[in-house]
Simulated assay, not measured.
Amino acid sequence: MKTSTLIILGVICIVLFIAPLVMYSGLGENEGYFGGADDAAGETIEESGFEPWFSSIWEPPSGEIESLLFALQAAIGAIIIGYAFGYWRGKGKEE
């Protein structure tokens, strides 16, 4: 690669690294800075007075267990998708 291309890519990387730090206003999770669409939807549903018609069969004892189960689910899905792509790629090379 040319030296000018490497310099431009380096400047872009630095800007992409520093821009979020500059744009961060110092507000934390308690002030709603990191609140997402799920939080907003949950608050709107609670304000409407909606009553769920069923309850969960089992609720994890802590947030850490819930995060673990979510990560496990994501890992299993990634393994299945990776296997499928690898299988299809292997079949294509075989032919």
Rank of each mutant, 00 (worst) to 15 (best):
W53P: 02
A41G: 01
K91H: 08
I81H: 03
L9W: 05
E59N: 10
V11Q: 01
E31C: 06
G10S: 14
E43D: 09
C13V: 06
I65A: 11
V15Q: 00
S67M: 12
E64K: 09
Y33N: 09
I81C: 06
G32A: 08
G86P: 09
K93R: 10
A74C: 03
I81P: 05
I65W: 12
S48H: 03
G35L: 06
W88M: 14
L9Y: 03
F85Y: 13
S25R: 02
A75Q: 11
V11G: 01
I8P: 01
I76K: 15
G35S: 15
A74E: 12
I57H: 07
P52W: 04
K93V: 12
I76N: 10
S55Q: 10
A37H: 08
F17S: 04
G36L: 08
I79L: 15
S67E: 10
Y24E: 01
P61G: 01
V15S: 00
I79A: 13
M1V: 11
G90Q: 11
L9D: 01
A37L: 12
F34R: 02
E66N: 04
Y33T: 06
V15P: 00
G10I: 12
G42K: 09
K2N: 15
W58N: 07
A84Q: 08
K91D: 08
G49C: 06
G49Q: 05
M23V: 03
E95I: 14
L9G: 04
I57A: 12
G10K: 09
D39E: 14
P52L: 05
F34P: 04
A71M: 08
I81Y: 07
Y33G: 02
S48N: 03
I79T: 10
L6K: 12
G36N: 12
D39T: 11
D39R: 13
S55V: 07
T3E: 14
Q73N: 14
F50L: 06
G90H: 13
S67A: 13
S4D: 15
E46V: 01
I65C: 05
L72N: 09
A74I: 07
F17P: 01
S48K: 04
E66F: 05
C13H: 00
A84G: 04
E47R: 11
L16R: 00
P20W: 00
D38K: 12
K2C: 13
V15M: 02
A40D: 05
I81N: 03
S62C: 09
G86I: 11
E29W: 03
P20G: 00
K93A: 11
W53V: 11
L69D: 04
I80Y: 14
E51P: 01
A37S: 10
A75R: 12
A74V: 04
F17T: 03
G63V: 02
W88S: 09
E64F: 12
N30L: 07
F54E: 06
I81A: 10
